[in-house]
Design a binder for these strands. Structure first.
Length: 450
RNA sequence: UCCGAAGUAGCUCAGUUGGUUAGAGCAUCUGACUGUUAAUCAGAGGGUCGUAGGUUCAAGUCCUACCUUCGGAGCCA
């Protein structure tokens, strides 16, 4: 006897079963009655199949069962598959038997429109809708593409811990918890520091897992819990890091195009835009970007002491906000890497450019179509004294970073890496309006249910 | 944290200068129909108008506070 995962017929493969009798298990997505004719749209997680019950052809109790079905009731249907032009997808099931697992009463999400708050309160049910189903399938494909890319290019998976003793980039945005007798522990906001140690052991590594930011950000680009993949490679300089990032993002996008056309179509995504995501991407230095902003009259809103706002030329040294990034990207159809940011606006572990100590060997990748920053990375400081001085000048506790400094004591080498935010990448590729749709159970500043 | 917007039926919304019994569509229930794709048609049930206080002969509507949600900024992936 075959086990359930082998024997039960999935709707995805119904085309192959034309002429055969099949058994389908699933949930009622929609019903329509037409007198002696009942249509049941059955959803089984793999797809949706139209099932038809015609009164003269079935036993009385089967027709009554069909009439009693409500949205999201769970059923097993036995019937014959046949080609039918009038049915969506070109096939339908001529129903012979119905077994009702459970009748659902008053399913809250109807085929009509709903508000954001309502859908988020019912996130556990919203996931059943066609749109959310498609986004989750694209997400799963992106995750697989990420793993395949690194696994296939000599990177070893070396996951970093989630519970950490100290901050990676300052403590202001960390979730805190008690850790037995050892005091406070924090949820990791990046696996990078551990990733660097791992790279010194394996050469090329990547970490992939959830990260946590207690930032009080309330925008359509922010989650407090999100997944990040962070490659780190010994002997990589900034140029290598940027090449890697371009290859990687191109691979992800092209893999989704190859395997998820159906889902992208269901989402109404303009795939011609994604087809253009081919190397080489655009690149410009931070300094060039500032010049571009000022040449194109993209001003910065600055608050005065009296509370009023004035518009000023973008000053060199200030970090870009979402409005600057968006303005910059409007000229491009492909992602753009902006590199060599001012040292002051970047993290302590980034190496300074030997040719210009005012800038760090940092790079961000901005995605087109308003998607914004998806990658942040850098070449790391590999000089012991320079790194130690940076830790102290950032008021970070030196004793917490002794192990990290060891990486510069024992065989320090140039090395680089970056972090790619999974949900932001899913948002860009699916064209989702809001990042809350890109994670099955998103955590946001004002929402932790369900 | 700051700026802006909104809370009316299970859901999405309308509700005029304050004025009799607060409306519609969808959903639910009953009935009709052999091709529906968010079916259609006929009928029925469904409300502490976010909470508390105030003004008034009279408050869904005006005022105050609070709560909740949404959008944006900063910060970031």
């Amino acid at each position: 006897m075959a086990s359930a995962y082998q024997s039960y017929q999935t709707i995805e493969r119904l085309q192959e079963a034309i002429g055969q009798e099949v058994t389908l298990n699933g949930w009622v997505y929609d019903t329509t009655g037409k007198g002696k004719l009942q249509f049941i749209k059955l959803r089984d997680g793999s797809g949706i199949a139209q099932c038809v019950v015609f009164k003269p052809n079935v036993a009385e109790e089967v027709f009554e069962a069909a009439k009693s079905l409500t949205q999201e009731s769970s059923v097993r249907i036995v019937g014959t598959v046949r080609a039918e032009e009038r049915a969506p997808g070109g096939v339908e099931v001529d129903v012979k038997e119905i077994k009702i697992w459970q009748i659902a009463k008053d399913y809250p999400i109807t085929p009509k429109e709903h508000g954001d708050a309502f859908l988020m309160e019912n996130r556990h049910l919203w996931l059943r809708s066609t749109r959310q189903h498609a986004i989750m399938r694209v997400r799963a494909t992106i995750v697989k593409a990420i793993r395949d890319f690194f696994d296939g290019n000599g990177f070893t998976l070396m996951d970093s811990p989630i519970l950490t003793p100290a901050a990676c980039e300052g403590t202001s945005t960390l979730f805190e918890t008690e850790y037995f007798d050892l005091g406070k522990a924090y949820l990791s906001q990046s696996g990078q520091l551990y990733g660097e140690a791992s790279a010194m052991a394996q050469g090329k590594i990547y970490t992939f897992g959830p990260t946590f930011r207690a930032e009080k950000s309330k925008t359509r680009r922010h989650l407090t819990e999100f997944w990040m993949v962070e490659p780190e490679a010994a002997f990589f300089e900034l140029a290598d890091d940027m090449d890697l990032a371009e290859d990687f993002v191109e691979y992800i996008v092209q893999t989704v195009l190859k395997h998820r056309q159906q889902e992208l179509a269901a989402l109404g995504r303009d795939v011609t835009k994604l087809e253009k995501v081919r190397r080489p991407f655009h690149r410009m230095s931070y300094t060039e970007a500032v010049e571009w902003l000022n040449k194109n009259n993209v001003k910065l809103n600055r608050k005065q002491a009296d509370g009023t706002e004035i518009q000023v030329d973008f000053p060199w040294g200030e970090d870009f906000g979402a409005p600057q990034e968006e303005a910059l990207m409007q000229q491009f159809e492909k992602p753009c890497i902006v590199h060599r940011y001012p040292t002051e606006v970047k993290a302590f572990y980034m190496k300074r450019d030997p040719e210009n100590p005012k800038v760090a060997l940092a790079m961000d990748m901005l995605a087109p179509e308003g998607a914004g920053e998806i990658i942040g990375g850098s070449q790391r400081e590999d000089d012991f004294e320079a790194l130690k001085e940076r830790i102290l000048s950032h008021d970070l506790p030196l004793e917490s970073f002794e192990w990290y400094l060891d990486l510069r004591r024992y065989g320090s080498v140039p090395h680089s890496g970056f972090g790619l935010g999974l949900e932001r990448t899913v948002k860009w590729i699916t064209g989702a309006e809001h990042i809350r749709e890109t994670n099955p159970y998103p955590r946001m500043i004002y929402r932790i249910q369900p």
